[in-house]
Structures are given as C-alpha cells and as structure tokens.
Design a protein around this nucleic acid. Sequence first.
DNA 1: TACTTAATGATAATGATTATCATTATCGAT
DNA 2: ATCGATAATGATAATCATTATCATTAAGTA
Lengths: 146, 146
Amino acid sequence: MIMIIIIDKREKEEIMARYSRQREAIRKQVSGRKDHPTAETLYAELKKDFPELSLATVYRNLGQLAEWGEVVKIDSYGAARFDWVVEPHSHFFCRECGCVVDMPEADDRMPRDIAEHFDGVIESSASNFFGLCKECKEKLDRESRN
Amino acid sequence: MIMIIIIDKREKEEIMARYSRQREAIRKQVSGRKDHPTAETLYAELKKDFPELSLATVYRNLGQLAEWGEVVKIDSYGAARFDWVVEPHSHFFCRECGCVVDMPEADDRMPRDIAEHFDGVIESSASNFFGLCKECKEKLDRESRN
DNA sequence: TACTTAATGATAATGATTATCATTATCGAT
DNA sequence: ATCGATAATGATAATCATTATCATTAAGTA
C-alpha cells in the first residue's frame, strides 16, 4: 500500500492579513540569507534599519509565515531556526560551530518507504544529521596534526 | 567514498561515578517503559516511591545516562524525551495526542547514502515523522463519519 | 474622514532546563 | 568502624527561548 505524504500548507486563515512594514522586512531578511537564522539573529540584523522593532514581532511574524508555508521552522536543538527553502530537505547540525547546512539529497526516498509500514498518517518528516561540518573537520584535523 | 558513521558513545568520563539510589531508581524507571517519557513524567512517577526526590536530580541523571550511552535523549519539539532503546531508530510524533512511537525500520539505509555526498563528518542522525498515530487517525475518522 | 480591527512594541509570564550551593552519602584508605 | 575526599542530592534561583497580555498605532474599507 502506497500512502501519499501530505505537506500541510494550510490556507491563509479566515482572518485577512494586513500589510505591515515589519512583516515585509522580516520576509525580505529571511529570504535574503542562506544560513538558517534564529529569531534573535534576524532581530539583531533588522534592528539596524528598524530600531523600533520588537523581538515579539519577529517571533509573531515568523510563526505566521511558517503557518502560511512561506518559511520552514526548524524546531530543534536550542533555538528554532528558519529556512526560506520550503521544499522538503534535511539539515545538518555542526556540534562545533553550531552552523546548520542543507542536505538536499536526503529526503523523498525514505518517507515513502516508511509510510507503507505505518498505520497512522505521516504528514511530514525531517531528517537531521549531526557531526562536524567541512570547515570544523578541517580545523580540528589541522590542530591535531600539531 | 564510503564513510563510517560513528555513534558517539564516549567512555564514562575521567571522574568516577558513584552509586546512588536515585540514579538506580531513574535507570529502572526509564528501562521499564516503552513510551518515551519526559523528565517531568519520570519525576512524577518516581516521586510516589521516593517523595524526597528532586526534579533537578532527574534531569541531572538523565543527562548523565545519555552521556554514557545508556539512554537516548530525543531532543525535539517541546520537552525532551528519553528512550531506553539506544540502537539507532526513528521516531514518530503524533500531533493530536502528543505520543511518540518508535519507527524501527527507518534508519540505516539512508545515512550511509548521504554520507557519500558530505564533506564533513556525520556522527549520528535522527529521522522524525509527524502526523496522526493509528489511534488518533481512527478516532478522527470515526468523528468525521457522524 | 471615520471606523473596525489587525499589527505593533513593551514587557510580564511561562515552560523547560541548567546553575548554584549548602548538606548528605558513597567508598577507598586508614 | 571511622575518616576524609568529593560525587550526588534537594531546594531553589537563574537562564533561555518563546508566548501571552494589553494599551497604542496603523491598514484598509465604508
């Protein structure tokens, strides 16, 4: 039995969303970066051009954007991180520098496989990898060689 | 290039660990259950036979046991959960009842695959699935039929 | 221009976890 | 058995990420 995996991009709510400069700025800031910033990081960056911005507004809007499927909330291991790339893919977490990098080739294959043996409904999945990123690996290699 | 995946079960520290009734009780409590209890849940249960127990002690010991590779800390989505099964496997999180169930057949295949395309070091991985468990699916099916 | 109400900023509150610290308990050596 | 060093504990304060509250501001429509 093949089971379809539903990625839950729900429609934009009953209540109509209004425009706001803050949300627009947050949207632009997230989409402009390839790292996976935390709310705090985005806040710090946005504050430069937007001194009156509140951290609560950043959290509020990121939550909303995630709900609308415009960003993905990577909800693990300390502070949540946000990703502009909404196509399903995995993430790697470096234990040394704390960076998060995309693992595009991971997904797709497996969930389908798993779903066949599962009695409930799988709506989404996330594969996380841990270890040392390229840079930290090389750095530690260099250090141990001394 | 095939890369070996190292599960980081580090040796039991320099400092020698001493016996304690509390740790023993915590160890027994975790190993005795198949759900994936949080620290708080374990605390509540242990408190019955151990009224003087402190929540801090539960956290402390679970952290230690995890460090020693005796339990696995499932570090995601709200409160951390602890698993006595240390062999690599995935978990399913039900969005309705919040239960966590094992997905034994998930791992193994994929990480090896991924590792070939990764320049750093992958030490471990975790695949998480989200959706509705069997019970909640059936319950919701029943309700929508009315 | 006025009105309705979504969005904001400031901040208090919450929840999970960790840190602190004085006291207690383990365990090897005496 | 008792001593001494120090790991472990219990109680609780502190921290960190996030959410809730609420009075004020600002979209967007009538």
